[in-house]
């Protein structure tokens, strides 16, 4: 049965083939094939990056506004955490098809769902970060005559930055993984190469696309860590 399933994919694979025919025909792991066929992955990879970056950015904007509101009105923290927690609990495959009657098949559905998943993690980290700002620092800010708004933007948010970016890092890594499922919502991405036409027995394809997803998660993580280092130089000075 599996041989019958894999036949169409292998046929397609053989058309693209430039080297290692027997390796692919025997369905082994073929690094040579990945190198020769790398262009096959560029479009899904770009789709994947667009999905992740867009949803994390929108998610961050929403969570940031919610956190600033909740920072002033503490009683809102509980309900917001509970609500975003429910969103986070919904399995992505289910959420895609629950949204389908409303947003239709395609990138929009995937973006709404992926954005929804980032809210909980980022919101929590911003609130924690703002709570962890030392009272001394805030007092000093008030002492030099900062208004509440200036205090927020010049003292509290800069000092909360490591916690905030830690949240964005977790959200981006998680979203890279979840976005592999966006293919089921009709939004493409690396998942389309993992399941390769609802067939997940093509070893080389699974390793190549899965590996690219892991690599993308790592690259985004290192990028965000660098952003944090650049934006909060005083922490580097302290640890050095």
């Amino acid at each position: 049965m599996l041989a019958a399933q894999i036949a169409p994919v292998l046929a397609e694979v053989q058309i693209h083939e430039r080297s290692g025919t027997s390796c692919i025909a025997q369905n082994k792991l073929c690094p040579g094939w990945i190198v020769d066929n790398f262009d096959r992955y560029t479009h899904p990879l770009i789709e994947h990056i667009v999905l992740v970056v867009t949803s994390v950015t929108i998610g961050f904007a929403i969570a940031f506004v919610l956190a600033l509101v909740a920072h002033r009105r503490r009683w809102l923290v509980g309900p917001i955490v509970a609500l975003t927690g429910v969103l986070y609990t919904l399995p992505s495959l289910a959420l895609f098809f629950l949204l389908l009657p409303i947003t239709g098949r395609g990138t929009m559905t995937a973006l709404v769902a992926l954005t929804a998943y980032t809210l909980q993690i980022i919101f929590r980290n911003i609130v924690t970060g703002l709570d962890n700002v030392p009272a001394d620092a805030k007092d000093a800010g008030r002492g030099v005559g900062l208004t509440e708004r200036q205090l927020l933007w010049r003292v509290e948010i800069p000092l909360a930055l490591p916690d905030i970016i830690a949240g964005v890092r977790i959200a981006s890594t998680t979203t890279v993984g979840l976005a592999t499922l966006a293919v089921f919502a009709g939004a493409g991405g690396l998942g389309s190469e993992i399941i390769a036409g609802s067939n997940i027995t093509f070893k080389t394809g699974v390793v190549a696309a899965g590996g690219l997803a892991v690599l993308l998660a790592l690259v985004l993580d290192v990028f965000l860590l660098t952003v944090q280092r650049v934006l909060s130089p005083w922490r580097r000075a302290r640890t050095a």
Binding site: L178, L190, I194, F202, V214, L218, D221
Partner: peptide
């Protein structure tokens, strides 16, 4: 967290 669950399942099925 960095390993997509779909990739993990696919890896198991394939190998």
């Amino acid at each position: 967290r960095a390993v997509p669950s779909l990739a993990l399942i696919a890896f198991f099925v394939a190998y």
